[in-house]
């Protein structure tokens, strides 16, 4: 399972970085979302992977670390809010700049205009 989780985090991050480097705002927002998914999984995995054990300490029972779950919850809320904000900002930029390129410049066959 460790290898699978590592692979998922890696692929999500790679997709996120690739998309974030694109020229249009929509792929950039998607890329940031992918990166925040990746980091949420990563934070979660940092409490070590354990299956079927509760995040509370009981007598003699095995337990999983509850703190990363709290951290992930915080990180999810923050990244959710940020994504909402950046989408609205991207829409505003589309309205103000007249196109959805991150530089505000429209490119066609003849070059920028």
């Amino acid at each position: 399972m460790e290898a699978l989780i590592a692979l998922i985090i890696g692929v999500l991050t790679a997709c996120g970085v690739f998309l974030a480097l694109r020229g249009q705002t929509f792929p950039v927002v998607l890329g940031l979302t992918f990166m925040s998914y990746a980091v949420n999984l990563f934070l979660f995995a940092m409490g070590r992977l354990a299956i079927g054990v509760p995040p509370v300490i009981a007598d003699g029972a095995r337990y999983t670390d509850p703190l990363p779950q709290a951290l992930v919850l915080t990180a999810i809320v923050i990244s959710f809010g940020m994504t909402a904000f950046v989408i609205v900002l991207a829409l505003k930029a589309r309205a103000e700049l007249g196109n959805d390129h991150v530089d505000g410049t429209h490119y066609d066959e003849d070059g920028p205009r």
């Binding site: 940031l32 900002l89 103000e96 991150v102 530089d103 505000g104």
Partner: peptide, 17 residues
């Protein structure tokens, strides 16, 4: 302002990650 703001927001979101 919107153009500079978009860059500022995106780069800081990447930084937060």
């Amino acid at each position: 302002r919107v153009k500079a703001g978009l860059h500022f927001v995106v780069i800081n979101l990447a930084g937060s990650t």
